[in-house]
Design a protein around this nucleic acid. Sequence first.
DNA 1: CCCATTACCTAACGCATGTTTGGTGACCCA
DNA 2: TGGGTCACCAAACATGCGTTAGGTAATGGG
Lengths: 209, 209
Amino acid sequence: MARSLDIRSDLPTPLPIGTAAQLRLLDEGAHLFLTSGYAETTMREIASAAGMKAGSIYHHFSSKEEMLELILVQGIDVMIQSFHQTQRETRQQDALSRLLAHIRAHLGSLFEHGPYTAAHVTTFPYAPTEVRKRIVPVRDGYETLWTELLESLSDSGAITLPSSVSMTRLILMGAMNQTIEWFDPSGNQSVDQLAEAIANQLWDGVTPR
Amino acid sequence: MARSLDIRSDLPTPLPIGTAAQLRLLDEGAHLFLTSGYAETTMREIASAAGMKAGSIYHHFSSKEEMLELILVQGIDVMIQSFHQTQRETRQQDALSRLLAHIRAHLGSLFEHGPYTAAHVTTFPYAPTEVRKRIVPVRDGYETLWTELLESLSDSGAITLPSSVSMTRLILMGAMNQTIEWFDPSGNQSVDQLAEAIANQLWDGVTPR
DNA sequence: CCCATTACCTAACGCATGTTTGGTGACCCA
DNA sequence: TGGGTCACCAAACATGCGTTAGGTAATGGG
């Protein structure tokens, strides 16, 4: 039985603990799940991308589903770590700058800190039910972080919430997450500019015109 | 060989032309592609949902991929028909009311006019390459309709475009399309309210507070 | 009344998948 | 030096998939 890779640590871990081969398999697996989908991606493709054969994967992981769950969890961890780091780094900034920084950080999770978060966003709806059940509480934790951020910004008068904080969070998440499908980080627009565009579209005056 | 079901008509067709069995297969197929994904959905499941066995499908369609393409095309047709109808119905209304009506219409395509549009949005990224190639021009046509709408609203001063019209369209589309994952049309919020929430989040004062 | 067509059926086929099994070579430690 | 462990291999297995083939019953038209 492959050793279980416990990456659901409370301590900040930018990458999951594991051997080089395990990390390569997860990296390539996340990339393939992102670009092709979970069901469309074969163990043979993941193994080949990681420089081994499919049968060898089972020395490291017990199943395809275990790999998926580890990738999904890592995707959330990247978001959560990034959120906390942004919170620390922007404590002295004004409200709208903090909001922009958090939007920028979320987009950084999607486009700059590996394929895990984007793979999470695109793959989670099609994950097996029992995998989703185990992951929903962690996702709710991340959503709560955003809810509290938006509430505090609204309480201080920095932003308006046209309907409710939940609705605003969902619309904002939707606008950010759907960029996976069309934004090209190596294109002529930067992630900074994308963050500003989203922030300025949802709230007036986040950055000067 | 099953008769080809040509639904890419220029005339308004609320439902594709075909026999009752073909329509049932496409309806159930679209619903299953939406809820489970294209690759995860089997021909056996589609056939069973439509009240027949898998082998029988091939009397009506040549392949699973042909069914997918018909469903994806129908999904766009629903959006385009709905857009044109909304344009006709709102010709006499003020700018912001027209914008809200178009947002409402797009959401209606997702949640009220069958599963085709939502199946299109969620499944298109994972469709086989040659299927996507054939569909991209039709999608571009729909995007152009929105681009022209947003440009005319901006030209008349009704809305602002914080960065560019393309960026605004993409952010708006993202916010609307991602609602597939969380909005429950039979929940305690209506599609009208969802449209207002999105419109008011992206532009101030679309509806009175 | 008979023949052709349609719309389904069952069964099977060929293929691809995730996973298992037995093996090998390298490495490390006693 | 030998034994144990690890990390891979090739091959095979069991299963399920999309699709095909041959068949049946019903229907309609000549």
